[in-house]
Simulated scan of single mutants.
Amino acid sequence: MTTLSDPPPASCQAAPASGLKLRALFRDGQGEMHLDWPIARLDEAIQDVRGTLWLDIEDNPGEPSPAAEHLLLNVFKFHPLAVEDALRESHIPKIDDWDDYLYLVFHSSSIDPISDDLCLQELDVFLGPNYLVTYHEAPIAFLSEGREAIEHDPRDRMKHGADHLLFRFLDRSVDQSLAAIEVLDERVDQVQDAVMESLGPQNLHQIFRIKRSAIQLQRTFSPQRDVLNRLARDPYRVVKEGHRIYFRDVYDHVVRIHDISESLRDLIAGTLDTYLSVMSNRSNEIMKTLTMVTVMFMPMSFIVGFFGMNFFGEALELEARLPKWFLFFASLAVMSLSPVGMLAYAKRRHWF
C-alpha cells in the first residue's frame, strides 16, 4: 500500500529540474500593482503593512536551492524547523501556528489518465499579515491560473489581503481534487461494465489501481479537512475574522470530497466482489460442463472395459453363437446410446 511519504508512481514523477524560479507580485499600500516585483526589494514589500505580497518559489525537485533557503530564513525570517519542513521533507497536510505567520502543507491531486494512479502535488505555504509565500517543486496549474488572473485583473485580485489570496488558491486546489474524484468515479463505472462483459487479469489490476488511488485520496483529505476546519474556526492573527467564512466554504467542499471518497471505496469493494462472484460462477459452469461430459461417457468406458476382458467371450461362447459383425454393431449401438440416455436423464433432472 502506498503512503504519503512514498515516492509517487513513475507517471506522476515531477518534471526534471529546471532551476529555481522566483515570481513576486506586489500590491502596495496605495493600491498600485507590481506584476514583477524585484526579489532584491522583498524587504521593502514586507515592511509595507498596507500592501500585499505574493512570492511563488518553484524549486528543483528533491534538490532545495540555497537561494530559496536564504530567502525563507533571512528575508522572511521563518523558523528553521518550518523551513526544513518545507524544503526537505514531505508531510501529510498540516497547519502550524508560529504566531506572526502560519505554515501550511496542502496537497492538490489529479489522476493519471493512463495508469489511474493518484498524483499528489505538495504545496508549502507561509501566510503572514501582508504576505503569502508558496513553495513547491513542480509547476502547479491553479497557481499559474491565479497568476494569470491577477495579471488580467490586477486591481481586484489582491486587494483583500494575503489570507483571501490563500483562500482562492485552496479553493482551486479542492476543485482540482474534485475533478480527480469524478475521474475515479468514471473509471469505476468502466471497470464494472468490463467485468460484466469479460474477465481477465487486466480488469483485476485496474480494480486494485483504482482502489489504491481512492484510499490514498481519502487519507490525504482527512487531514486536509482538519487544516481547513482550523482556518475557518481558530482565531489566527494573520487570518481576518471576516475571511474565516471563505475557508469554511472550502471546508464544506473538502468534507463533501471526503464523503464521496468513502462511498467510492465502497463501490470499488463492490466491484471487486462482483468480479470474484462472476469468476466463481463462470468456474462453476465450466466444472459442471466438464463433469457432465465425464458422466455421459462413463457407460461407454464401462462397456469398453468390461467387454474387453478376454475371459468374457470364452465363458459365454458369444463368438460361437453370434456373428462377429453383430457383436460389433450391438456394442457400438449401446455405447452410442448410453451418453444420449445420460444426457436426457440430466436434462430431465435439471442438472444441465
Results as ranks from 00 to 15, higher is better:
E137Y: 12
D99M: 04
H91C: 02
P113D: 04
Y101Q: 03
L102H: 05
L143V: 15
R88W: 04
D116I: 01
Y135T: 07
W98N: 13
V105S: 00
E151D: 04
V133Q: 12
I114F: 12
R157L: 12
I150M: 13
S115I: 03
T134K: 07
L120M: 12
V105N: 01
L118N: 01
E145Y: 02
V125G: 02
P93L: 05
D99L: 04
L87P: 01
I150G: 01
S90A: 08
D156V: 08
P139C: 09
S108D: 01
D112W: 00
S144I: 10
M158Y: 13
E145P: 00
L120K: 08
S108P: 00
V105E: 03
I140A: 08
H107I: 09
S144T: 15
L132D: 12
F78C: 09
M158W: 10
H79L: 06
S108G: 15
V133C: 10
N130K: 06
D124E: 14
L87M: 13
F142C: 14
R147H: 13
E137R: 13
C119D: 13
I95Y: 01
I111N: 03
F142E: 14
P93G: 07
P129V: 13
D124C: 14
Y131F: 15
Y101T: 04
E84Q: 09
D156E: 13
I95S: 05
M158N: 06
P93I: 08
L143R: 04
P113T: 04
E137S: 10
W98V: 01
F78W: 12
